[in-house]
Amino acid sequence: MESLRKSPRTLPASWYCSSALYQLERRGVFKKAWHFLGPVTRFQKEFEKVVYEIAQVTIVVENKTAKREDGTDGIIVYAEDESTKIKSHLTPSGLLFATLSADSPSFEDYFGGLEELTNKIDFTKLPHRRSISYEGRFNWKTMIDGYQECLHCQYTHPTFSKYYPPAFYKVENHNNFSQHIADPSKQSDGLFLYFFPICTLNVYGGGMSSFRTLPSPNPGVSRMEFDYYYSGTDEEFEEYFKFVRQVAMEDFELCEKAQANLERGVYAEGVLNPVKENGVAFYQQKVRESVYRQHAEEEAEKDRGDKVAQVAEVNGTASVVVAT
């Protein structure tokens, strides 16, 4: 019983079903985060605009001069709404990140230590092969819950588990990102990264893929966006694509069923395994802290506004008395 009391608890089911809660997440989580957009090979076509919509903010990436061999020079990132100020960052290894507002911290403060890990791989070598997008009937956190643990892998992903047995699986959490290690004795075999709050990067099976779980004002709906990279032949890519898509669709079905149970009230709140579900506990705590902080800031701002209004009302009354 003592160990259960010390174990981290999950977010309440209401956090997966509340529109008002999502608006707090939008302001406190998404607008203050850095979001992974892709490696430079995603933006190789000169003057082609790649458009992203994250938490109802539209961002555009455009390669103005795709003439150099690495394709990095000339890649610009801007918000579709010219009044919205954002920031962007390109890592030395070729990964592009951006914010949704100017309220986010610096890239170095947000993702401290990330470049030491990603700089071990040259992300400019794998060409972009395909992108797909579709909606799912689940909250964005439902998908991240599944990604951040592998307890379900043996039963839900039998093909994946043949390559990466879940008995060795562990998650190492860092500053706003997590590294998933399939086998601690073979840390160079596959790179699986989660970027808080909604982005992933997975290098395995001879290729590379990433996804974003994009929230909507309807807390029970998210849009999944996938990008796939591969340097082999078309036939080899299709085999790789078939493999990784199978894993993705297995997760998709699981998330829709989990969300349905959350909305029916089947589950309210529970306890997380501090070892096997440490990745879930890590990101959920960051959501919880961000929402609480945003709510406290807005309440404090509201109190300041009320006090200013009260002072103005008192001063106005005094002026009237003096004039009389």
Rank of each mutant, 00 (worst) to 15 (best):
N63P: 02
R130L: 14
R27Y: 07
H180M: 15
G232N: 12
A258V: 14
L114P: 01
R223H: 07
S290H: 04
A323V: 03
K286H: 02
P105T: 03
G316W: 03
G74E: 05
D183I: 06
S319E: 05
M208F: 05
P197N: 10
S104A: 15
G220W: 04
T58R: 15
M143L: 06
V308S: 11
Y230V: 04
K242P: 01
Q259F: 06
F168V: 00
L254H: 07
A33L: 10
R293H: 01
I181T: 09
T99I: 12
F252A: 04
V77R: 11
D227Y: 02
F97Q: 11
F241S: 11
F97N: 05
F177W: 15
G28Y: 13
L100H: 09
N63M: 11
R129K: 13
F195P: 04
K31S: 04
L201F: 02
E239K: 15
T65I: 11
G71H: 08
R293P: 00
F168G: 12
Q259G: 04
E2P: 03
N176S: 04
N139L: 04
Y16D: 08
T41K: 13
R5C: 05
K120A: 12
T41M: 03
H295P: 00
L193V: 06
N261C: 13
G112W: 09
S133R: 15
K242G: 06
V280T: 13
F177P: 10
Y134G: 02
D122C: 05
L126I: 08
S290D: 05
P12R: 14
Y16M: 09
T124Q: 08
V308T: 10
L100I: 03
S210K: 00
T72K: 15
V311H: 07
R304G: 12
K64G: 08
N175F: 00
V287L: 14
T99S: 10
V271P: 00
V322H: 12
D251F: 01
Y52I: 09
S290R: 09
E277M: 10
S3T: 07
R5F: 08
L21R: 12
N139Y: 02
Y194T: 13
A268G: 01
Q285I: 01
C17Q: 06
K49G: 03
F252H: 13
S93D: 11
Y147E: 06
V322A: 08
I75A: 01
G305R: 06
D183F: 09
T84P: 01
Q179C: 07
E172C: 11
E25W: 08
D109A: 12
F47M: 08
K307P: 01
V271H: 05
S14M: 07
P39Q: 07
T200Y: 00
L126P: 04
G136D: 02
L214I: 11
E62L: 01
H157G: 11
E115V: 11
Y228W: 07
D303G: 02
Q44N: 13
I198Y: 00
A79N: 07
A323P: 00
Y164P: 00
P184T: 00
